[in-house]
Design a protein around this nucleic acid. Structure first.
Length: 389
DNA sequence: TCTGGGGTCCTAGGACCC
DNA sequence: TCTGGGGTCCTAGGACCC
């Protein structure tokens, strides 16, 4: 048995590390993986980080900070396949693997120590296997609970292991800034700082009721647990990052802001088609359709409408978001982004359509399915709505 | 040319129902 | 002479995570 059964394994600069396998000549240069134009950094190698480059920074800023940075376009197919191999390696150690994302997972090794020895040794074994097989490094945090393991792996980066035994939890946690905690982002951090709560220790010694008045009932209780390391230690085994989705959506930032209704409605059609097609391959349908609009000044609004019945039909989704868009009554407002999301997803098999006599909807659904078949055979460029050609 | 794209969960108010 | 209390659904916004 062990008192630190939870491992959090986190790949180091995952996308960048994978991309650099193909370009070993670049390992000593600052490299980021990210989009062009109005994109942001998805991952930065450790050389780039010395210039202050971080994930989520706008590419325009990155080029100013580090003019000789090498930018590599993301290759999701490769990321996904490397991720699958890594997850397989985890499952050779224990069946209790909770994937968080492509590059991150929790492992419960309670049932593995008799066979494989103590957790620290298991962590090192995983690290060398992944390094040998995939040519990338990772860091591991080992603890009794999920959040402490995660904080430990962060401190272990890059390419290290940190074990936090139960007796060391408070001395490990309490000096940290409140912003380190999972669920405390920029806003909550600033709020807590304003209350004079700077460290996790400050948080721990604040009465629960006071905390809840400051940040709300739910988050208050959550933070109290995190501050004492008494969060969950049971994992939910999950193969992929996000199992059965509760919503599916797509949004896109325009190359340049636009107020042209025709351009916007056409973009909404593309996005509706993309979402509907993903819903059909997942065999789900949904009732609540949400339009997202981001203006040039970055303010963002959403408008949603719940339909009488769930749908996975491109035309119905597109009609709903177009109505929502028109109802906004925008005149000259320049838009930066539009998005389409469908919520309240249920298995398609549970949806029983009330067909109204003479309604052509069945025809649109059949047309979508024909598009799906053609797309499978000829690729997505081959078949698309006439207005997108 | 500041600020992507995929999600999740929480809050809060109003409607509606029992 | 006032003002009930839940539960659920819908909508909008916001915070957060990777």
């Amino acid at each position: 048995m062990t008192d630190t059964p939870i491992l959090h394994v986190d790949m180091d600069a995952f996308y960048a590390s994978v991309a650099l396998r193909e370009r070993p000549d670049l390992v000593d240069q600052p490299v980021v993986v990210g989009g062009s134009g109005r994109g942001v950094v998805l991952a930065a190698n450790y050389v780039a980080r010395r210039y202050g480059v971080r994930s989520a920074l706008p590419m325009t800023r990155v080029r100013r900070m580090c003019p000789h940075v090498v930018v590599i376009e993301p290759d999701y197919a490769t990321f996904t396949s490397v991720s699958a191999s890594v997850m397989e390696t985890f499952r050779e150690v224990t069946p209790v693997v909770e994937a968080v994302s492509l590059d991150e997972a929790f492992l419960d090794v309670r049932g593995s120590t008799r066979r494989l020895g103590p957790p620290e040794g298991i962590a090192e074994r995983l690290r060398s296997t992944i390094h040998d097989e995939q040519g990338i490094t990772c860091s591991v945090g080992v603890a009794a609970s999920v959040s402490v393991a995660k904080l430990a792996s962060r401190q272990a980066k890059p390419d290290g292991v940190i074990v936090v035994p139960p007796a060391a939890v408070t001395s490990f946690l309490h000096p940290l800034d409140v912003g380190e905690l999972y669920g405390v982002g920029e806003k909550t951090q600033a709020l807590l700082h304003r209350f004079g709560l700077l460290t996790v220790g400050d948080l721990a010694h604040t009465p629960l009721r006071t905390l809840q008045r400051a940040v709300g009932d739910h988050l208050g209780r959550e933070l109290h647990h995190l501050a004492w390391g008494t969060d969950r230690s049971e994992l939910t085994p999950r193969a992929g990052p996000h199992e059965p989705e509760r919503s599916m959506g797509a949004d896109e930032t325009f190359g340049r802001d636009t107020d042209d209704r025709e351009v916007i409605v056409r973009e909404l059609l593309r996005l509706s088609a993309r979402v509907a097609s993903r819903m059909r391959s997942a065999e789900v349908a949904g009732r609540t359709i949400t339009l997202k609009v981001r203006f040039a000044d970055f303010t963002t609004i959403t408008r949603s409408r719940t339909l009488p019945e769930a749908t996975d039909v491109t035309v119905e989704i597109h009609r709903a978001v177009t109505r929502l868009y028109d109802a906004l009554g925008l005149q000259r407002a320049r838009l930066r982004l539009v998005g389409v999301r469908v919520e309240g997803l249920v298995p398609r098999a549970t949806v029983h359509r009330q067909l109204v006599l003479g309604e052509p909807e069945r025809g649109w659904a059949d047309a979508d399915r024909a598009v799906d078949r053609a797309t499978r055979r000829f690729g997505s460029a081959a078949v698309r709505p006439a207005s997108l050609v």
